[in-house]
C-alpha cells in the first residue's frame, strides 16, 4: 500500500520535473519559458521530497519531516526568483512574443 503511494508520488514528481524542463526548452520566448520551471518543476520536486519524507518515516522509527523544510523553502523561493528574473528581463528588454509593459525600474540610484 505504502509502496503504491510512494511509486505514484515519485512518478508524478519525475513527470512534472520533466515537463517543467520541457517547457524551458520548448517554449518560444523568455516570459512563457518562465512558467514551466516556476510551477511544474517546483511541484515535481515537492512531490519527490514528500515521497522521501514518507519513505524515511515508514522505514525508520519516528517521523522524518525535515524534507518538508526543503519543500517549503522551494515553494517560498521559486516565485521570488521568478519575479526577479521577470523584472530583470523587462529591464533588459528581452524579446517577447507580446507587447511588454514599460520598464519602470529607474536606473541605479
Amino acid at each position: 500500500m505504502i509502496d503504491i503511494l510512494l511509486s505514484v508520488l515519485i512518478l508524478t514528481g519525475a513527470i512534472f520535473t520533466f515537463i517543467g524542463s520541457l517547457g524551458l526548452a520548448r517554449l518560444r520566448d523568455f516570459y512563457t519559458r518562465l512558467h514551466g520551471p516556476t510551477k511544474a518543476t517546483t511541484l515535481g520536486v515537492g512531490c519527490l521530497l514528500i515521497a522521501s519524507a514518507v519513505y524515511f518515516s515508514v522505514r525508520e522509527e519516528g517521523v522524518s519531516l525535515h524534507e518538508v523544510l526543503v519543500t517549503l523553502f522551494l515553494f517560498i523561493t521559486a516565485p521570488v526568483s521568478a519575479h526577479l528574473l521577470a523584472k530583470a528581463a523587462l529591464h533588459l528588454k528581452v524579446r517577447s512574443l507580446v507587447a511588454t509593459p514599460p520598464d519602470n525600474d529607474a536606473p541605479a540610484e
Binding site: 520535473t17 517543467g20 524542463s21 524551458l24 523568455f30 519559458r33 518562465l34 520551471p37 518543476t41 517546483t42 520536486v45 522551494l74 526568483s81 528574473l85 530583470a88 528581463a89 533588459l92 528581452v94 524579446r95
Partner: peptide, 15 residues
Amino acid sequence: DAPDRILALDTLYVN
C-alpha cells in the same frame, strides 16, 4: 539572453 541562462541554471539546481 542572460535571463534565459539564469533561469536554466536555477532549474538545474532544482533538478
